[in-house]
């Protein structure tokens, strides 16, 4: 018990990094998805193929493999560019990799949400003289996101848990702090259970917030 208290500040520091990785990946992934959904619906045919290929391929690959590809691949690219060994920062590599993954899943979620926005909204917006881009950004997108809240929330929970994988490339987030504490104290069970409990706590709180957000987004529907 006292061991937990000694390491608790470290674990909480790790928790902050976990939240950074998850939030960063979620926001970038969402931006990727918004652009991808727009491109999928209005882009030229090669772009559509590219986006649908991106979604299919990424969803079929293990997240860990993508993290390794970005981390080791990035290191090789940077080292080549600078001529000396440059290791990619694990935080950057983790956020990049998880953003790419989240982007693919979020594209699917937003595509589904886009279908729920009635066609008449497009017609009304264009007949008012809005360009397709403006109509998408100011009329359709906000409604789409409101419909997508449960799906977006689910994806947030997925990213929170996936962020633990970044510990394998050495980022000192919650999981990695747990591994360090477990190694130093020789009590893996204690620390992995504590780490697990902290994850359950943040996913539990997130679930409550998502529920509230969904009720708010669904008002008047």
């Amino acid at each position: 018990m006292s061991a937990i208290l000694t390491y608790l500040p470290h674990l909480l520091q790790g928790l902050l990094v976990t939240l950074q990785v998850a939030a960063g990946s979620f926001v970038i992934g969402l931006l990727i998805a918004i652009v991808a959904v727009f491109g999928w619906n209005f882009g030229p045919r090669p772009l559509r193929w590219f986006i649908s290929g991106y979604v299919t391929v990424v969803r079929g690959l293990p997240e860990l493999l993508i993290i390794f590809l970005v981390f080791y691949g990035g290191t090789v690219l940077l080292s080549g560019a600078f001529g000396t060994y440059v290791e990619v920062n694990a935080l950057t590599a983790g956020i990049c990799a998880l953003s790419v993954v989240a982007g693919a899943y979020l594209t699917e979620i937003l595509r589904g949400a886009l279908l729920t926005v009635p066609q008449g909204q497009w017609e009304a917006a264009t007949s008012l003289g809005l360009s397709r881009m403006t109509a998408f950004r100011d009329v359709v997108l906000p409604q789409m996101l409101a419909y997508a809240v449960p799906g977006l929330g689910n994806q947030w929970l997925v990213i929170l848990k996936e962020s633990a994988l970044v510990s394998i490339i050495g980022l000192e987030e919650l999981m990695r702090k747990g591994v360090i504490a477990a190694g130093a104290t020789h009590s893996p069970m204690t620390f992995y259970l504590t780490v697990g409990a902290l994850y359950v706590a943040i996913t539990g709180v997130s679930t409550l917030i998502i529920g509230a957000a969904d009720r708010r987004a669904a008002r008047g529907r």
């Binding site: 848990k161 996936e162 962020s163 633990a164 994988l165 510990s167 394998i168 999981m175 747990g178 591994v179 477990a182 893996p188 069970m189 992995y192 259970l193 780490v195 697990g196 994850y199 359950v200 996913t203 539990g204």
Partner: peptide
């Protein structure tokens, strides 16, 4: 509510 990696390590 928790990552598979944590469960695996437990």
């Amino acid at each position: 509510g928790s990552p598979l990696l944590v469960q695996l390590f437990i």
